[in-house]
Nucleic acid binder design. Structure first.
Lengths: 233, 233
DNA sequence: AGTCCGCATTGACCTAAGTCAAGCAAACAG
DNA sequence: CTGTTTGCTTGACTTAGGTCAATGCGGACT
């Protein structure tokens, strides 16, 4: 890879643990790859051959049953890390929700490098712990929240994470944004059907809590009320 | 602490990453603590002050809504690690499901030690990655599986994890075991009510797939069929 | 032996969300 | 600009699982 120093996620991805010379060593192991919407980077159950940093775009991690039910178990944004380092097959597939760009490594090369760089492993551990916390919050949503609580939670979460990607000093709250997924994918993430997702969005719109200018856009008009619904108060 | 060398989880807990002299250094930072059934070790939302290894017994990690709905987001067995190292408040509570014994550290002391011992951090990272995979599998259960699939999955999972704790050479499949939780807790783990749990267990009993000698015991009579139900075939 | 008491089970009924089946509207191709 | 496709919404109906209310039962204490 060429230019880690100028990488847009340089200061937020795990690479931020590295000194300039280490960074360029890691850079030599990876390469940038474009992934277009709908393209699958890793298949569920495949041996874990690659890991990557997300530079641009949004990807989903998903699990399916034999009979075709799907659950999205994670959504990754720019600067997030993808993949299962240190052996093991990947228990979920990775697919681009939007056109994306990732910085990709073979797993073995990355593992070797990580073993030599405790600071990188430390960053990776922190990230994994954060991801685990987020997964557990989502378990609460899937196990115990109602459909409207789920939808509200999703909208808040997407708004927050898209906000964190941009400059948070300029836009502390992102009240207008594009959904990085369609209705089916929202359902797969929330454990709901497409129809229920649609009905709940309509309900929020009719309550004037949000606006839906087009199928991919959302405007949060009353964040307070949306948060109240989300936290199941 | 006194006798890490003779600890029953010595070879399975993260301590297995350490050399004898390192082990005794870590041992000096921790102490054994007995936790009786129902006792809470960490409250949801509290600052993360302690971390621990489970020596004996089973504990739950759980999250609640303001209005009292509860979701169990993790169950830990002997040799598992508890807590949120490296800052942050604990987003879930930790409560003993059975009488238990843990090897407890103040978070700051543990963090300091971990920073100096990359091998320990590596073990912790692997464990966290495994835990994340397990959480994601559980998200599929909560989002997409039916009540009977959930119950079957739980029985298989408990049987496997209790089996892994004992000597797996002697007992590769644990077909008779004590549930480390009551019906309410099974519900909180599966995103179901106590009544649904009870009805599904009765159904499995009537189908002669399991036996329920008493309220805490389960005998798996037809593992194959139970697994088929669990994997949503 | 009897009587609590805390779980667990069972039954009757209800409802949130799923299913099935039209419609509809923006995007797209000819 | 017109027909087609694709994704979304809406309505009518069904159902899995929740709710509410008894009832049952085993273990602890008198």
């Amino acid at each position: 890879m060429s230019d880690c120093e100028t990488c847009v996620v340089r200061n937020r991805a795990i690479c931020s643990a590295l000194m300039p010379d280490e960074l360029s060593a890691l850079g030599k192991l990876g390469r940038k790859q474009v992934v277009s919407r709908g393209q699958t980077l890793v298949w569920e159950g495949d041996e874990s051959l690659v890991v990557a940093n997300v530079i641009q775009g949004v990807l989903k991690l998903s699990v399916s049953t034999q009979d075709g039910r799907e659950q999205i178990v994670g959504v990754v944004f720019p600067s997030d890390f993808i993949g299962r380092p240190f052996g093991k097959e990947s228990p979920y597939g990775v697919t681009a929700l939007t056109d994306a760009e990732v910085c990709i490594f073979t797993r073995t090369a990355f593992d070797g490098f990580a073993k030599e760089h405790p600071d990188l492993q430390h960053k990776l551990l922190q990230r994994t712990l954060d991801e685990l916390d987020r997964a557990r919050q989502w378990m609460m949503l899937l196990g115990r929240k109602t459909a409207s609580e789920r939808i509200a939670t999703l909208l808040i979460e997407i708004s927050d994470r898209l906000g964190a990607v941009g400059c948070s000093a300029i836009a502390p709250f992102l009240d207008k944004f594009e959904l990085p997924m369609d209705r089916q994918q929202m359902g797969d993430l929330l454990g709901l059907t497409i129809e229920t997702v649609s009905r709940q969005l309509t309900k929020l719109k009719e309550a004037e809590i949000i606006e839906l200018p087009d199928r991919r856009s959302v405007v949060i008009k009353d964040r307070r009320r949306l948060e109240n619904i989300a936290t199941a108060a």
